[in-house]
Computed example of a mutant assay.
Amino acid sequence: MNKVSVAELVEANNLIVYAGGNFLNDRHVTTSDISRPGLELTGYFDYYPEERVQLMGMTEISYAHKMEHEKRMTIMERMCGENTPCFVISRYLSVPEEMEIAAKKHNIPILRSKLPTTRLSSKMTNFLEGRLAERKSLHGVLVDIYGLGVLITGDSGVGKSETALDLIKRGHRLIADDRVEVYQQDEQTLVGEAPKILQHLLEIRGVGIIDVMNLFGAGAVRTSTDIALIVHLENWNKDKQFDRLGSGEQSVQIFDVSLPKITIPVKVGRNMAIIIEVAAMNYRAKTMGYDATKVFENNLNNLIQENSKNS
């Protein structure tokens, strides 16, 4: 089961440790759902999701401060479940004394943030969804081309890494080489990133491993990007028919997301970096409503109609 330590949650969301700093690595989050324990403050614990991060904002804290000491102590004790990862207080609101006592007794960290509750909840949810999502490792190279995530695939030795190097020299950015970790962020978005051991590294046959950030600067790399397009490189075969007009649409299903795919034949003398760059630009034009293939087909139909009238 995937899990995230509270220490990672603190670092990624700029949280302030109010109490329980010694237990940040011992407590773990296993779900991206965030709990706002309003009902629990009233004493309703029939369904208490103790495994969630317990986020308290203005509503919860103001209600808690109006409770009598004995009841507040009882409620805070019940909220400290065995699997409760942490309490998070938004807007730098004051922490109830009873919460501090109960959390300390059960070794549960208390964290604070200056952010409003809704924004903080969204920020933590996005982080946890990314870290806890199911992941798949794909063979390929992921490059950011004009802000578009392009996954370059193909057989080993077809020239994926060399093409990526050309794209980097043309001002584009590397995300991952050889292995791409992919996870689904939402119903329409796949995110790709490099495994930690391969971040910023590129393998060029005959040269070896190069550090792209060290050679080309921080502007030549990104940690992750949304994948919008798959470009598959395939060795040129005269017996195989490749799409010449761009009308043969292909797609690849990864998790629940369908990604468009373009197959490009590789042949000596073809500049693959420029071709992939143009393919990315053409895909973006299509998403913005301009399809050169349809323009050509319309022009062709108009020409046929004109010739028919003149004949």
Rank of each mutant, 00 (worst) to 15 (best):
K104R: 14
S94W: 06
A133W: 05
M73A: 15
L128C: 09
T118V: 14
A102Q: 06
E50V: 06
D144L: 12
P49H: 11
L93P: 05
A102W: 00
C80A: 04
S113C: 05
K123P: 03
T125D: 08
H139Y: 14
L41P: 07
I101V: 12
A64M: 13
S122L: 13
A133V: 07
P96T: 05
G81T: 08
R78H: 13
L39Q: 04
K66W: 03
L93N: 04
G43Q: 09
C80R: 00
M56G: 10
E100G: 15
R36E: 05
E134C: 04
S90N: 07
S137Y: 10
S137G: 05
K66S: 14
M79R: 07
V95G: 06
E77P: 03
I108Y: 01
F87Y: 10
M79P: 06
F127K: 01
L39C: 07
P109F: 01
K136N: 06
K105G: 01
K71L: 11
G81S: 07
H65P: 00
M79W: 07
F87Q: 07
T125R: 15
E60F: 12
K66Q: 14
V143P: 05
I101N: 03
E97S: 13
M73K: 15
L115R: 02
S94A: 14
F127C: 13
R131S: 14
R52V: 08
G38R: 09
T74M: 15
L111P: 07
L55V: 08
K66A: 08
S94L: 10
L138C: 07
E51R: 11
S121M: 15
L132P: 10
I61Q: 04
R78M: 15
L39E: 03
A103I: 01
M58Y: 06
R112I: 04
L132G: 10
K136M: 14
S122F: 08
F45W: 11
R135I: 13
I108H: 00
A133M: 05
K136C: 00
R131D: 03
G140A: 10
H139G: 11
S113H: 01
T118K: 08
I89M: 06
D144G: 12
V141A: 08
T59Q: 09
L55C: 05
V95H: 02
E97K: 14
L142M: 09
R91F: 04
G130F: 01
D46P: 02
E50S: 13
T84F: 02
E97V: 12
R119F: 07
V141D: 02
E98G: 09
R131T: 00
N107Q: 03
T118R: 07
R112T: 10
T84V: 10
G140I: 09
L120T: 04
L93Q: 08
L115P: 02
V143I: 15
E51T: 12
T125A: 15
F45D: 09
L93A: 06
S122R: 11
K123D: 08
V141S: 06
Q54C: 08
N126G: 08
S121I: 13
A133I: 04
L128V: 11
S122Y: 10
K114R: 12
I108E: 01
E40F: 11
E100S: 13
H106L: 02
F127Q: 10
V143F: 03
S122I: 09
L55S: 04
I108D: 01
I89D: 02
I89K: 01
A102S: 11
K66M: 11
M124N: 08
E60C: 12
R135Q: 14
